[in-house]
């Protein structure tokens, strides 16, 4: 497998400022591209002789609205101890009070929704991850890559379905995984894990109707971010690796 370092070096040399970010993490090359240049850069990545990314392996929609938020204050609460990890029924949504603090929705940053493309070159046997943020949080839009790679069709539909990212120029942007008539984009961080509605049989009407969910949400293990000694060694190792690469 080709070295990601040399690949990234070539890409930096060729694209220069057109790459908003380029780095190596865990031995994998990642570049960030601005949406207005996405199609042009991707076309070059596909066709240029040095890269030949013939295959678009995957597209992942990501919602960064809660990145770095935890549900449990790890350091300050040691005196008082912890209560149970079950709280109010709205748990699992953002913008609500966690056990030891308020979680904010990081909105209107222009870096909430992103599509992450994984490219694979069969000729040179290397991989590249391309990330592109949608500038508008209210109406995330990105150009479609279906003209470059036909395999972009379904994953773009999926990212639209689950995250509401609109792919401009997609020939057939319908929902794909959720139910017919589904409302909302379920993988967004402000969509509750238990959902909003559930179907049930209504004996009076004699048919199945949708009503609000009646599941009681429970969090058995709260989300914890720790920066203690346990993981520091590995983080350090990863960071030094980064420095050596970049």
């Amino acid at each position: 497998m080709a070295e990601p370092e040399s690949l990234l070096e070539q890409l930096r040399g060729h694209f220069g400022d057109r790459l908003a970010d380029a780095r190596i993490e865990y031995g994998e090359a990642t570049v960030e591209v601005r949406p207005e240049e996405l199609v042009a850069v991707m076309a070059e990545l596909r066709d240029a002789r040095d890269w030949r990314f013939e295959q678009l392996s995957d597209i992942a929609g990501v919602d960064f609205a809660a990145y770095g938020d935890d549900e449990w204050i790890t350091e300050d609460a040691t005196h008082s101890g912890f209560s149970r990890g079950v709280i109010n029924p709205d748990f699992g949504r953002l913008g609500l009070t966690g056990i030891y603090g308020v979680q904010e929705v990081h909105e209107q940053t222009g870096r909430r929704f992103a599509a992450v493309y994984h490219l694979l070159s069969l000729t040179h046997n290397h991989r590249l991850r391309v990330r592109c943020f949608a500038p508008d949080d209210e109406m995330p839009m990105l150009p479609s890559l279906t003209d470059l790679w036909p395999s972009a069709n379904w994953p773009e539909r999926e990212a639209f379905d689950l995250y509401g990212i609109v792919f401009e120029g997609h020939p057939d942007l319908r929902r794909i995984l959720t139910d017919y008539g589904f409302v909302g984009h379920p993988f967004r961080k402000d969509f509750p894990l238990i959902g909003n509605v559930e179907p049930r049989y209504d004996p009076e009407k004699g048919r199945v109707i949708y009503g609000p969910v009646e599941i009681e949400p429970r969090v058995l293990v709260p989300r914890v971010i720790r920066e203690d000694n346990r993981y520091r060694g590995q983080q350090r190792a990863a960071r030094t690796e980064d420095r050596a690469d970049g």
Binding site: E25, Y26, E28, T30, D58, V116, H118, R127, R129, V221, V224, I225, R226, R230, Y231, Q234, Q235, A238
Partner: peptide, 11 residues
């Protein structure tokens, strides 16, 4: 609690 992984992304 499980274990915390260092931040980053992998495929």
């Amino acid at each position: 609690e499980g274990y915390c992984t260092p931040p980053g992304e992998v495929y």
